[in-house]
Design a protein around this nucleic acid. Structure first.
Lengths: 164, 164
DNA sequence: GTGCCTGCAAACTTTTTGCAGTGCG
DNA sequence: CGCACTGCAAAAAGTTTGCAGGCAC
């Protein structure tokens, strides 16, 4: 790890002006847009929830036939994306270390299926606790992480246990 | 540390009632009450919240002057306690792997101080979501894990950041 | 006395770092 | 063309397992 900057990101936009100024992180010059970075960022953007490193790595391999993508590159790229506020690290109660696209999608909770292990974003915040609230004992709340567990629709439809 | 849940299940958790008082889980046949196990269980019982392995290990060393306690024993004992429902594994959003006494104290949420990193039990469940509820999309909720973050009273009283 | 436990160290797993070659800008 | 980026492999950090001896029962 090292840089903290803002990378141009993928090329989703047609008329991508410059690397705007309202950027969250100060841009660091010298960052390069490589195929691997674009692929990894795209994978995160397309996911319905946070992905594990192995998942990201394998999807990257499939997306880049012929060209290898080292696991180290996956780790380095993810750290870079997190530093640039383009991705977010999520550690679940199950112990999974996952990453998800960040930004436009604000704070939200997660749901992990106990049957298949997959994780989905809950596009809402289920905790109606105001930040800044003081709990009995004097604990000042500034943020929270909530993960629901249960069964997803897919697994509910398939009585047969199939652990990914 | 990632992967999925722990529970390597070295040996099958047994069912028996050895030291059965109000014990939730029956003891395993042939289980022996050793000094190390008693110390580790006592440490968990006395804690105001979940502890990390290093914390448990160091407290065990201090509690047992003269006699060493191997880190492997700490791991093995904690797994054993979890299998017997005497302790519970808690993985926080920060990535901390911690253990806390289980049983009499039912489900509760946690609070982790962003300044000192300590974790406290919140003796209540802040999520008013009924288990069995179905979320939009068909996700059936069976459980949840909630961790609040912020500043604890101690750190609030000491403006100076002291990351221990 | 039996065999469950323990400490120590090696084995594993997951993540990070060092290098030299590669290709983006 | 220079230097950031990448893949590979070694290094670190965290957790588990194999053993021989110790101790609870």
């Amino acid at each position: 790890m090292s840089s903290s900057a803002k990378i141009p990101a993928r090329r989703p936009a047609k008329t991508a002006s410059k690397t705007a100024s309202k950027a969250v992180a100060p841009a660091k010059l010298g960052l390069r847009q490589t195929r691997q970075r674009g692929v990894i960022a795209a994978i995160l953007e397309a996911a319905p929830g946070p992905l594990t490193i192995p998942e990201i790595h394998q999807q990257a391999l499939k997306a880049q036939p012929g060209s290898n993508v080292g696991i180290a590159t996956v780790y380095r790229t993810l750290n870079l994306l997190v530093e640039n506020r383009r991705a977010q690290l999520v550690i679940l109660p199950s112990g999974d270390t996952r990453y998800e696209a960040a930004g436009h999608k604000g704070h939200h909770d997660h749901f992990q299926c106990k049957t298949c292990g997959k994780v989905f974003d809950i596009d809402a915040c289920l905790l109606g606790l105001a930040h800044g609230a003081i709990l009995p004992g004097g604990y000042r709340v500034e943020g929270h992480e909530l993960t629901l567990t249960g069964q997803c629709p897919d697994c509910a439809a398939k009585p047969v246990k199939r652990m990914r």
